[in-house]
Amino acid sequence: MIGIEGVSKSFSTKGAGLVTALNTVNLTIQDNEFFTLLGPSGCGKTTLLRLIGGFEAPTTGKIRIGDIDAASLPPQKRPVNTVFQSYALFPHMTIAENVAFGLQMLKVPKADIDQRVRAALSMVRLDNYASRSPRQLSGGQQQRVALARALAPRPKVLLLDEPLSALDLKLRKEMQSELKRLQRETGITFILVTHDQEEALAMSDRIAVMSAGNILQMGEPREIYDNPQSHFVADFIGESNVIPGTVLGRDPAIMIAVRPERVAVSPAMNAGQGRARGTIASVTFLGLDTLYEVTLDGGSKVRSRCRDAELSLTAGQSVVVDWPSGVERHLLN
């Protein structure tokens, strides 16, 4: 559905000269895929989304949408719609009028508009809210209206620019499920931009992890989580212990990455050698889990998330840490 070939984007800025936001990015996104661009602020993910949407033009490279060479097409000529972080609902219009607005701009016949508005509101489960104004809705409901408005014209691609960031935790979780449901029901290609790794892991078919204008790793959520290919990806996707190889008597040219949920902590007096010895620095109760931070004898820190309520380890206690063979990943130092 989307082909990005050798796309770069540079901006001229006062004082800083030419700034490169994207550096020769190559990317293919499939039809009917939920694809996420994930990375910290300033990594280039929103710039890439804006290039796909037509709000910016690439400095170099090609952008294909379906069979269309889209690099020079304005936004209104692309089979793409965008849901923005701010929702951008018209406060003087009803919910139905907000959803109908884009269809009116496309000169869709009125009878078809009415049918599509009803269908879009039904899709986001707001059938009974058509006559209300945006100010009469909660944040989550306003987000659904913005989705309905974007889906009503039946685009081939829906761009989602951090659409859940303004919602509280419970609403974000609910909307994650809603977005995935809508993507499956409509068959539309969804492209999400977020800096929230948990959000990306929960919803995506594939994820591209970005940093400094480059795609560092791309793949299915579990593949990226279990097999990070760099220190940055291991540290950014979920929690990860990244330990110098020398601490564990390994090659000093490598770093060892292991997830906290894979790390077991035991009292030193009751265990064998383990991987390393250390001292409990802190204990944090997290509900289902307890987070232990261990200072290893070599000075490095290791975190362990355990569900064994009977451990009852305390700060200052001597322990050994261990993990199963095959769960650690070796990264170049």
Results as ranks from 00 to 15, higher is better:
196 D>P: 09
249 G>L: 03
184 R>W: 08
253 A>S: 13
190 F>Y: 10
223 E>P: 06
185 E>M: 15
233 V>S: 04
218 M>P: 02
259 R>L: 01
186 T>M: 06
250 R>A: 15
233 V>F: 03
249 G>I: 05
224 I>E: 02
214 N>Q: 14
200 A>H: 01
183 Q>I: 09
213 G>Q: 09
245 G>K: 06
246 T>E: 15
242 V>T: 09
263 V>M: 08
183 Q>N: 11
198 E>C: 08
225 Y>I: 02
216 L>C: 10
212 A>G: 12
190 F>N: 08
186 T>F: 00
228 P>I: 08
223 E>V: 01
243 I>F: 01
224 I>K: 04
186 T>S: 11
232 F>Y: 07
235 D>Q: 10
182 L>F: 05
218 M>I: 15
187 G>L: 05
241 N>Y: 00
206 R>E: 10
218 M>W: 01
244 P>S: 08
209 V>K: 11
235 D>W: 05
214 N>H: 15
185 E>N: 11
210 M>D: 04
189 T>G: 04
225 Y>L: 04
207 I>P: 04
240 S>N: 14
215 I>C: 08
258 V>C: 02
260 P>C: 02
188 I>Q: 01
231 H>A: 14
251 D>E: 09
194 T>E: 06
185 E>Q: 12
244 P>D: 11
199 E>Q: 12
197 Q>F: 07
238 G>P: 03
219 G>N: 11
196 D>A: 05
222 R>M: 14
235 D>K: 13
240 S>H: 09
198 E>L: 13
208 A>V: 12
219 G>M: 01
195 H>E: 13
261 E>T: 10
242 V>A: 00
225 Y>A: 00
181 R>D: 09
209 V>T: 10
250 R>Q: 09
242 V>G: 00
238 G>S: 05
183 Q>P: 13
220 E>S: 12
195 H>F: 03
221 P>T: 11
237 I>H: 01
215 I>G: 08
239 E>P: 00
193 V>D: 12
223 E>I: 02
189 T>I: 07
213 G>D: 07
228 P>M: 09
219 G>K: 11
200 A>N: 05
187 G>V: 06
243 I>V: 14
214 N>D: 11
219 G>Y: 05
255 M>N: 13
200 A>L: 10
183 Q>A: 07
188 I>M: 07
205 D>R: 09
241 N>R: 01
250 R>C: 02
216 L>I: 07
247 V>R: 10
257 A>I: 10
194 T>P: 05
202 A>V: 10
212 A>D: 14
191 I>N: 01
249 G>F: 08
240 S>R: 05
218 M>T: 13
261 E>A: 12
264 A>Y: 14
201 L>M: 13
254 I>V: 14
240 S>T: 15
233 V>D: 03
213 G>S: 01
188 I>A: 07
212 A>I: 08
247 V>T: 15
192 L>V: 08
264 A>C: 15
187 G>Y: 00
221 P>D: 06
